[in-house]
Design a protein around this nucleic acid. Structure first.
Lengths: 300, 300
DNA sequence: AATAGTGATGCATTTTTTGCAACGCCCTTA
DNA sequence: TAAGGGCGTTGCAAAAAATGCATCACTATT
């Protein structure tokens, strides 16, 4: 698609904040790039970038144009995908942005399942916090968004949502292990392993704790679940998670999950969807369908 | 926008059905145009047109691409419009497709009003029958659609709709002129001036007549209102119209309009809106706002 | 005051696009 | 069956556009 090269150039200049830097990553001379920009601005009749002593910066007109450019480029991807699909090819890239709660085995399993059927399809999975997923979709960094407890949904087209109550994870020998359902104050008596508040689970817990006047004592806190996973817990400690993110081998590891009373901690929701007003590529649409079907069967 | 010249070329080839003819209207050589097409197909990896002995014809891939091209081109218009609006210019073109009921003085007055405020804005008004308006929007022949009694609204984003009951138009001396409201069987006793069924009013009348077992006797029938207007009516004859299309000087011409009982003929609706999922140019959006406000004030 | 960064520009070079002419194909017509 | 006219395609030379290089003017930092 050589004809939308100018678009790519504008996008890169905007990202780099300087014509010379952009020219370097684009592997052309600054003068050529500069002239392309001048041509575009000339055709448009307006400046797109304001010139600063240290480089360039998008002005309002430029932002309008850049939004169009991003729409246009990803719509072209969709077109290519649909055309490829016509000829029976199953190719393309499925790009997904998820909140960290979805980085567990569920999504990985779905990707594996999909790829076993369509080996030509590649995946790109990005992790963003729940407040940033929608923005990533707006910027066309991904086609599909899957978020637990998103902070806003203005430009998000929800295709499926899934109830995911908070569970408490503990060793089988734990004093609370016999219970069928836990109250939050019971958990609060033990040392807790918590993520930070960018996570949906932690956010639900914190809000509930404030409402109920309970103090949650974190013995360890991290924004990375990988770190917490590697942290060898003691037998007293409790952690929290949602079903879709609870490892399947919990039992083998001598642990179990007990739900927390929804009156104490409200049930959260996983939202699955894409940017509003977009038609996403075929492969993405098919994967989306598979995921929602699996969710409905496994958790619904 | 030189970079979307290839798009324009594809569109023209599709329209002309032949490279040579398209080349002529595009004022370039067939060989150059052909090579551009081959380049595009090469970049896309698929043929866009199937080659026939008598020319070329879009295949499925081509249709997908053409839809993208039309979206892209009209979205670029929107971008330019929004950018022009930033710098305080009020320029651009407002393109409207309406059913014939809207070609009366109402819309013309609104256009005049708008242009008196923004002389830089030009208008393009196209008439289509109620079943074709939506398709015209899909093909990006216009930004705004205004239809009386549309046949479908699948891709139509309604921004306003207006109740428009059917009125009966007659001379002041007519036997029915004293009534405040008419039954359909009363009208059926007189010779009628009717449009054909592509018109919404006629469609409402015909359906009601069938339901009520009434026979409507048309002394003259035409799909063109202009013709009917020039037709010198006799004092007995009746015609039908909706308020928004009734001329303001009816009284001066010795005529009046009497509503038909909605129990006999259901009230029709004027739908105002644009293609679903589109952001229309600034001038169009502003005009749309003016029209709906005026409609609400004058008829709502 | 020197330096290092920025965007802009004149000029020669390279790359791309275009026009011209001709070819091969298929359908219609004589 | 042969001739003619329409079609898309292609080789080649000319025209046009894009690029790279060197350089300028400017500004913030050192």
């Amino acid at each position: 698609m050589r004809h939308l090269l100018p678009y790519k150039y504008v996008e890169e200049i905007a990202k780099a904040g300087s014509i010379r830097k952009a020219a370097e990553t684009l592997a052309i001379t600054p003068s050529a790039l500069n002239r392309r920009l001048l041509t575009i601005e000339d055709e448009l009749g307006v400046q797109i970038f304001e010139r600063l002593p240290v480089g360039v910066r998008l002005n309002t007109a430029g932002e309008i144009l850049l939004e169009h450019i991003r729409n246009q480029m990803s719509d072209m991807e969709r077109v290519k995908s649909q055309i490829a699909d016509l000829s029976g090819q199953r190719r393309g890239t499925v790009s997904i942005v998820t909140s960290p709660e979805l980085q567990g085995s569920f999504l990985a399993g779905e990707v594996l399942k999909y790829q076993s059927e369509f080996p030509g399809v590649t995946f790109q999975i990005t992790q963003k916090f729940r407040g940033e997923v929608e923005q990533a979709l707006i910027e066309h960094q991904a086609d599909i968004g899957i978020v637990y407890e998103p902070t806003k949904l203005a430009d998000f087209q929800t295709l499926y949502n899934l109830v995911q109550p908070v569970y408490c994870i503990m060793e089988k020998s734990h004093p609370l292990a016999a219970k069928k359902s836990l109250r939050l104050y019971e958990c609060a008596e033990f040392p807790l392993i918590l993520t930070d508040k960018t996570w949906g689970v932690r956010n639900l817990l914190s809000q509930s704790a404030i409402r109920l006047g309970i103090n949650l004592r974190a013995v360890i806190q991290s924004d990375s679940r990988g770190f917490l996973n590697n942290y060898g817990r003691t037998s007293e400690q409790l952690s929290f998670d949602i079903p879709i993110n609870i490892p399947e081998n919990l039992d083998e590891r001598g642990m179990l999950a007990v739900p927390i009373n929804p009156l104490d901690v409200p049930e959260g929701f996983v939202f699955v969807g894409h940017l509003k007003g977009r038609t996403i590529p075929v492969a993405s649409a098919r994967f989306l369908e598979q995921v929602t079907t699996q969710m409905a069967g496994q958790f619904g």
